[in-house]
Write a protein that binds this DNA or RNA. Structure first.
Lengths: 102, 102
DNA sequence: CTTATATTTGCCAATATCTGACAAGTCAAT
DNA sequence: ATTGACTTGTCAGATATTGGCAAATATAAG
């Protein structure tokens, strides 16, 4: 249930001495939703990550990477072949990268 | 649009000299759907993979791994930090594995 | 023990996304 | 021009996710 992303958000929010009730409105949601996001039972929208990064003064891609990692983990979490699948996906990504350098 | 999974399914289906119209009913769908799956515009349901593996005489986890890899790729395909995210997710998986060996 | 503040949880209507089914389309061979 | 294999478009219905509120819980203070 807990997510890397949610845990990091909470950690950063507490470091900044901010309450849910202060941060939530900046993301146009209520405290209940943000609470659920930190607890991992809801997902923040991808496009809100940059805003949250600013609010929490996180460093550049920190939150994005954790958010993505959570999504990836979700896909394979119950699979015996999780790591094999990850490697297969990585290869595809690396091939794309190479060929994008037209 | 094309998927590794879809391409492999097509390849295997042709190797077995089977038509869409023969395979589709075994998966309880129509040929249009199966066509889209091979083309990558629709997803086969996770739980149907073992059945399809049998039908196409694929080897054990081949199709499952490709199917999962496609899902993973989908999460990060437009992200600059795709590989970083993959590595972060891999670490989580490897830690789970270790701790599961109670 | 009551109040106050912060957070969490449960619920459900609203919205978004995915799927199944069919019809119509292309393409190649005859 | 007909047939067979496959593809594509559409759309209602099924599923899943979200937003928002209200009630529950937790902690601290008085």
């Amino acid at each position: 249930m807990a997510t890397q992303f949610g845990e990091k958000v909470r950690e950063l929010r507490e470091q900044q001495h901010l309450y849910l009730r202060q941060v939530a409105p900046l993301l146009e949601m209520d405290t209940a939703q943000l609470s659920k996001i930190e607890k991992g039972s809801r997902q923040l929208k991808r496009e809100q990550i940059p805003l949250l990064t600013g609010i929490l003064k996180a460093n550049a891609d920190e939150l994005l990477v954790l958010w993505l990692a959570d999504q990836l983990y979700d896909v394979v979490k119950d699979e015996d072949v999780a790591l094999k699948a990850m490697e297969a996906a990585e290869e595809v990504i690396m091939n794309k990268k190479k060929s994008k350098k037209k």
